[in-house]
Write a protein that binds this DNA or RNA. Structure first.
Lengths: 153, 153
DNA sequence: TCCTTATTTATAATCATTCTTAATAAAGAA
DNA sequence: TTCTTTATTAAGAATGATTATAAATAAGGA
């Protein structure tokens, strides 16, 4: 049976790149940490466990390559660090994020939600949308529950 | 008559900050370059024309202060540089952006457009939204016109 | 096998941003 | 006014993320 790794290998080959052991190790880490929004440094430290000889620059290069091929999404939450998410297979767009300004947690919204808005934008601004990035900042349900239980807040 | 600068001065005083000459010069540059999405370096170079003795660190500090007070919005389009926009007076949210992947132009959408989406998110994810950031990436009307007129594309 | 090209490692370099320290300016008290 | 305190600034050093460089290695094709 064809695995996700196999399909990524094909995508790389189609663009005449190889799935080297370092690249495969990096992809495996991303597969094991979906929804975790890892930074390059995070990925590097995790990859070192399964491929200790890898260099940080290689991780950066691999993440950049995967971003170009739209296998991963490079996101930025405003702290000077880029974060990397595997894009859902077949998804044409970035997914959305909920960033909690209390605890810093980042949750994901996989549903599109923007179809209607995009139709308006394409028509009214005559802009042909290829992708989008949408992040909400606010209070997550966990913090909300905590503060409603704790009268000191 | 009360000017925008006067109102910003009041906002600063209300938070016990002063509108120093350096800060005022920085604000004036932002007022003269609305919709331009200037980087800190851009602002610095422009401010130097009207206040040559200013330092880059002061510009950074001022932009950070104005961001905290929600007088300017700090935005990031994924090119390792933060950009700064004066927020429209009275606006509670970031405005949206259209980034052209052909020519790099950035246009603004001042309308909210997200009210319906936010209602869904607040309810379904039990997330109390305080702000949002929405950017569309695609082909702007200028590039679209260009390529339809130019058969070589 | 040789030859060519892609990739990696290790380290140096770069670039945006923040920090540090001493100097300066402003504001309030006496 | 003068003294005192605090806020702010300039200049440059430091930091931290990311990218470039150069030499070494690996892979693939002829």
């Amino acid at each position: 049976m064809e695995t996700r790794i196999d399909r990524i290998k094909k995508q790389l080959h189609a663009a005449s790149y190889k799935l080297t052991p370092q690249r495969e190790a990096t992809v495996r880490i991303l597969l094991n940490h979906e929804e975790d929004h890892l930074s390059a440094e995070d990925v590097y430290l995790l990859v070192k466990d399964i491929a200790p000889e890898i260099g940080l620059a290689t991780v950066y290069r691999t993440l950049e390559l995967l971003t170009e091929l739209k296998i991963v999404d490079k996101i930025n939450f405003g702290d000077g660090v880029s974060r990397y998410d595997l894009r859902q297979e077949g998804a044409a767009h970035f997914h959305h994020h909920l960033v909690c300004i209390e605890c810093g947690a980042v949750d994901e919204i996989q549903e599109d939600l923007l179809e209607d808005v995009e139709a308006v934008v394409e028509k009214r601004w005559n802009f042909q949308i290829k992708d989008h990035r949408l992040t909400f900042h606010g209070i997550c349900w966990r913090c909300h529950d905590r503060s409603s239980q704790d009268p000191s807040q």
